[in-house]
Design a protein around this nucleic acid. Structure first.
Lengths: 341, 341
DNA sequence: TTGATTTTTGCAACCGGTTGCATAAACCGC
DNA sequence: GCGGTTTATGCAACCGGTTGCAAAAATCAA
């Protein structure tokens, strides 16, 4: 159906190589030849088949975009940013949905079959085994929203979850909360553990503050709501740092059910700053992850890897900051000013 | 890096054809040969390169998944369902983000370069020119959430937007509203026009009911909020049928700002039934689109097309129904029972 | 104009597979 | 064991491109 290089060559009366060369930049073609070929190509509506060329060049310009996170609205923003950033670099995202997948070998096989040039893992909950398996299969890997360590085994672009935990703790203290709670995401996820670690360690210097902790079973509204309902049944804290914005909204719904008011009776601080958090009937105070920066940095790292396969893994860490809205009491001092930056 | 068919053939001491045949089902290979080859393939970690084989078979098993809708949470559900359904059929989604794209020719070129086997357009706002351009380029096309017509030019799987408009009108009347408003999505979209048409035509039989109409500029929270704020500044209706759930939530936020209460002062009915609509601090009465059914039917249609390229375009229409929640007054008669089905 | 140098072009082999065809091997009934 | 059929295998050409190499053409300096 679609015209091929051979068609163009015959019609233009030149060799196939000549046609090929007009479409690969850096190749040696005279201006005359190029013009002639381009004319015919235009007429025929020819455009080169990337997949065929990949056989010899070894590059498909296909990037596996793998995630297991198809229920958190923040990831729609993430996918939007990733797909556009990849497109801008002339790369194509091959979307891989890893929900319910536990064996990295399957994914490796799959990505191999399509000989993707690289893999972007976009998830804060996918176990590190996946990234490692891709790397071991010889593919450049960038793990966005992954766990930051001092000796990363694959490239990681993320926030410092420990620091985020600290930031949350400091914010709550600064607002005068004395009994604070950590209501994390899935306990097994390293991001949860890191945030807890930061949260607790910051508070360790303040023995007067009472800390409790618990975990929601997933990053979902229902899990957040359920967890908060059980928390409210016992002795409750004055404010909670929730695992993410979706959990926070679930928690808010539980609080509302109990006729308690926010932030007077209970304060909530989330994490992510998804679009919805700013909707003014939600108005959630939260810690903002700089999504766009993380995505762009991930792509930058990926394209760098495509040029230098041997590049040694690095971790890129982005700073978080608090977005003041209505679910935490204001700071005691001057309005708006926030010494915690 | 990755082992090739040749490697396996040499190692097993058989011809390349033999190896190829063990991996294509329906091919003639003895059990003995198959066993031998599979053993070696296993040892080497070989799996066939789909892209290379596509050169001769003409099938890449790549499906372009194109959308321009990366800001509406319902589409995260849609992407989740599509990617999983495609995976189950052994197909791979090549995600194409058409935000800001106006020229179908670019997308055609792009999808051609990757010689996708077919294209799924998932959008209610993308102009029909895109689907047609893909079709004209010889690709099987299914337009999910597209416009239903009696003589479809490409396969369409969707709800009947006219009927949805009627359903909304009937629901509002049944609940005793006398002044009703249509607050649609982008005016140019055919889905908006169809819903309006249905809404108005149903009410045409009831001259005692006063109807107004307006349009939000996009399917976003802000647009919905803005539009409702201007509506509230004038003579307002008792209930509004909003273009979708996101617009509805924006509208609710505006209503809340004006200290009006829902559903006592104003009723709202949305469309989509995205997950969030059921969150009980939103609790939106809405018209449910059967997303999963639409997606599965789309994929079914796509796989059918792959087997029969000449298949004549059809429209598959799914019924909508109302999901009763808290933003519309209850029906006057018995609780819960809903005569409108 | 000539010979040396640079640039452009085509040939042919190759990338990793598939497949029609011919031949070889296995199977069948007797 | 035989001839006849069916099944399995390998050869070689092909899919749509790219690329090293050598020959041809263009450019340059003298």
């Amino acid at each position: 159906m679609a015209p091929t290089l051979k068609d163009v060559a015959e019609r233009a009366g030149v060799s196939r190589s000549a046609v090929s060369r007009t479409f690969t930049d850096g190749a040696s073609v005279s201006a005359k030849m190029r013009k002639r070929v381009e004319k015919v190509a235009q007429d025929l509506g020819y455009s080169p088949n990337v997949l065929a060329s990949s056989l010899t060049t070894g590059r498909t310009k296909l990037i596996g975009l793998v995630s297991n996170n198809f229920h958190n609205p923040i990831f729609l923003e993430v996918f939007d940013l990733f797909t556009r950033a990849l497109q801008d670099k002339g790369l194509r995202p091959l979307l891989v949905n890893l929900t319910d997948e536990t064996d990295p070998a399957n994914s490796v096989r799959l990505l191999r079959q399509y000989s993707v040039d690289g893999v972007v893992v976009a998830s804060s909950t996918l176990p590190p085994g996946f990234g490692l398996a891709f790397r071991d299969a010889g593919m450049p890997v960038v793990h966005a929203f992954g766990r930051v360590t001092s000796a990363p085994q694959v490239h990681v672009v993320s926030i410092d979850n420990i620091e985020a935990g600290r930031l949350a703790a400091r914010s709550l203290m600064a607002r005068g909360y004395r009994r604070v709670g950590f209501m994390g995401g899935p306990e097994a996820a390293s991001s949860t553990q890191d945030r807890l670690k930061g949260f607790v360690s910051e508070l360790a210097n303040h023995p007067e503050i009472i800390v409790s902790q618990s975990f929601a079973s997933a990053y979902t509204f229902d899990a957040g709501r359920r967890e908060m309902l059980t928390l409210l049944a016992g002795p409750r804290a004055e404010a909670y740092f929730c695992g993410d914005d979706v959990l926070s909204i679930g928690a808010l719904s539980a609080i509302q059910d109990r006729q308690l008011s926010v932030p007077q009776d209970i304060g909530i601080i989330g994490l992510n700053d998804m679009e919805m958090a700013g909707w003014n009937n939600i108005n959630l105070t939260t810690i903002r992850q700089p999504i766009a920066e993380i995505v762009h940095s991930s792509i930058e790292l990926m394209t760098a890897m495509l040029g230098d396969l041997a590049r040694v893994p690095e971790a890129r860490i982005f700073a978080c900051h608090i977005v003041e809205r209505g679910t935490l009491r204001p700071l005691p001092q001057a309005t708006g000013a926030n010494g915690l930056g």
